[in-house]
Design a protein around this nucleic acid. Structure first.
Lengths: 345, 345
DNA sequence: TACAATAGAGATAACGCTTACAAACATAGA
DNA sequence: TCTATGTTTGTAAGCGTTATCTCTATTGTA
């Protein structure tokens, strides 16, 4: 149905291989024929067939993007469309297509990745999450298939190209902000400890506490997804403590919104009764009430960098594993407030 | 590098075509050889090359998904990951891949779609938005390329398969809820009128007002993106009116959160001072404060249906244009409150 | 002037798979 | 025994590109 390279060749009075060379912008081709062929291509509305190209080239000019498994609402996090935008931006500018992979379960994801890789549909893969002992990572590593992780690999970190923020430092700095405002009882609310990002941010939180000589208390740590009503209960318990916290470090803006809401149910207001700091700086954190003081991790750029790294790696398989740290900035807004009450033993 | 069909054929002592037939589950193949070939495939770790397949088949077993242009924050709307999940679910189960297309501008989008179509990389396309006079739609229509719209086409509606909610009725019903609660001065806040969904929901709003004998006032309608600070100003103006509204119909949960926040800046609280109803029922609308009374449009199912329709259409091009209406439900939560104050002329 | 070097373009063989079409084989009916 | 019929498999020609090799002019050099 479509116009093929042969049709163009015939029309331009050259051989198919010549047309191919024109497409590839081969140097050994005279300006005259180049023009003639290009004209013919335009006139006939010729567009190369990507599948044929991929077959001959053994390269698909497309990169796979893997979202975490989510039967739950985690995927509703604006983080994902935003990284996608960043990735898409670079991919587009480099003439790569995006192949998306999602799934309800980890097995489904793995299966999808296997398909992508084995079927030669993609040249490389970007993982939009990083969790402990991920079979997908192992698979990719085993097959020596180019991939990059957005986030920090949970193991074999030196072998895996990844783009990340310095979440430990970010966690530390944002916690310090709370400390500087006079808070001494600061709790931590984060997602699953299987997620590397949670662990890192908590490390930063711990570091800040230690440096300030504040205790790092077990009962001040909550790990929840806020999908189950368990979240509410955990928060309740936190404030039923003898010495409830006055400051909260929450690892995600979306989660923060849930927390603010839960607190209010208990009659606690942010920031009047309790200060809260958060991570990601999605659009929401600006329009919610109160606007959140949050670590802006520059999601869009994370995506861009990931795409860049991957394409480099795809073009030259011998490219060594790299680590790109996208600097964060802190958005100071109004979810925290000065506090001078001293720490009560 | 990879194992090819020939390798398997040799190993199993059959011809390549036989292997191919085994893959395709061709009926005219003896159980014995089928087993033998399958065993060989497994042992050698054979996986068909998708590009070669697509080339021979003239079908790529993959569907393109087009997100709206967004240099702005509109894409951070949880709507998108959610439809994607729905689409992905069906696609996966039917062994289709997902090709994603985004872009900063409308031109970029169009260009991307053209590439997808011309390069034979995709068998069909799902549009995740519907706007007035969309060049993408025209292009697809012109080329008679299978596609479906999530939403309502702005024109040639009978020629375009689309899956949508009854947004007019939804708009009407949710507005009626406000009216039943005694509200008589109800304003409307929505996105651009270029978006069909905005128009439809507004129509429903208007219908409800008219049926209840309430006036449909120009000054009660705001169209904004809430990205520009213009949003704040518009809301200010609304409440500077002689008779400010006591009820608000907002076309999107994300927008609602912005509105609630803006109102609070003006010292107005939802639902105490003003009731608010909304659309979409994303996860956020449940965890925000107050939890929003909102029209649940079943985003996930929209995605599923769209994928199903597209795949049908792809498999049989002569499939007529269809219209699938996913029923909505209303989530009553606590962003509205009874009001008995009568309408003041 | 002769001969190597080189630029420009054609022929042809992959790339891995599908699919008529043909061939081989077995079975049954005459 | 021989043809007719049906089942199972093989052969080979694409699908649309790219890459390699070859051939012919043309240019430069001794």
């Amino acid at each position: 149905m479509g116009v093929t390279i042969k049709d163009v060749a015939k029309a331009a009075g050259v051989a198919p291989s010549t047309v191919s060379r024109v497409i590839a912008d081969h140097p050994r081709i005279s300006l005259a024929t180049k023009k003639r062929v290009k004209k013919a291509m335009k006139e006939m509305g010729y567009h190369p067939n990507a599948n044929a190209r991929s077959l001959a080239n053994k390269s698909s000019q497309s990169i796979g993007v893997v979202m975490p498994a989510g039967a739950d609402n985690a995927l509703q996090n604006p983080f994902f469309p935003e990284v996608l935008r960043g990735i898409s931006n670079i991919a587009h500018s480099m003439d790569y297509s995006l192949l998306l992979n999602t799934g309800q379960t980890d097995e489904e994801i793995l299966e999808g990745v296997k398909r992508m890789v084995h079927s030669n549909r993609t040249d490389g893969i970007i993982l939009l999450y990083s969790q402990l002992n991920d079979p997908v990572v192992n698979f990719l590593l085993e097959h020596n298939f180019p991939f990059v992780i957005v986030g920090k690999p949970s193991e074999r970190i030196d072998e895996i190209t990844h783009v990340d923020n310095d979440n430990v430092r970010g966690g530390k700095e944002i916690t310090e902000h709370l400390i500087q405002q006079g808070h001494e009882r600061i709790a931590f609310i984060g997602g699953s400890t299987d997620l590397v990002v949670t662990v890192d941010r908590m490390k930063g939180y711990q570091l800040a506490l230690e440096e300030a000589g504040l205790p790092f208390l077990e009962e001040y740590r909550i790990h929840t997804e806020f999908l189950e009503s368990g979240g509410q209960q955990a928060v309740n318990e936190l404030f039923a403590l003898e010495n409830p916290p006055t400051g909260l470090v929450v690892t995600d803006d979306l989660m923060s919104i849930g927390v603010v809401s839960m607190l209010e149910k208990c009659g606690k207001y942010v920031p009047e009764d309790i200060s809260l700091v958060s991570f990601n700086n999605v659009y929401l954190s600006e329009i919610t009430r109160p606007p959140l003081t949050t670590v802006d991790i520059h999601i869009y750029e994370l995506g861009q960098q990931a795409a860049k790294c991957l394409i480099e790696k795809v073009k030259d398989k011998s490219e060594p594993a790299k680590r790109v740290i996208v600097p964060y900035t802190i958005q100071y807004r109004s979810s925290t407030i000065e506090r001078d009450m001293p720490y009560i033993k």
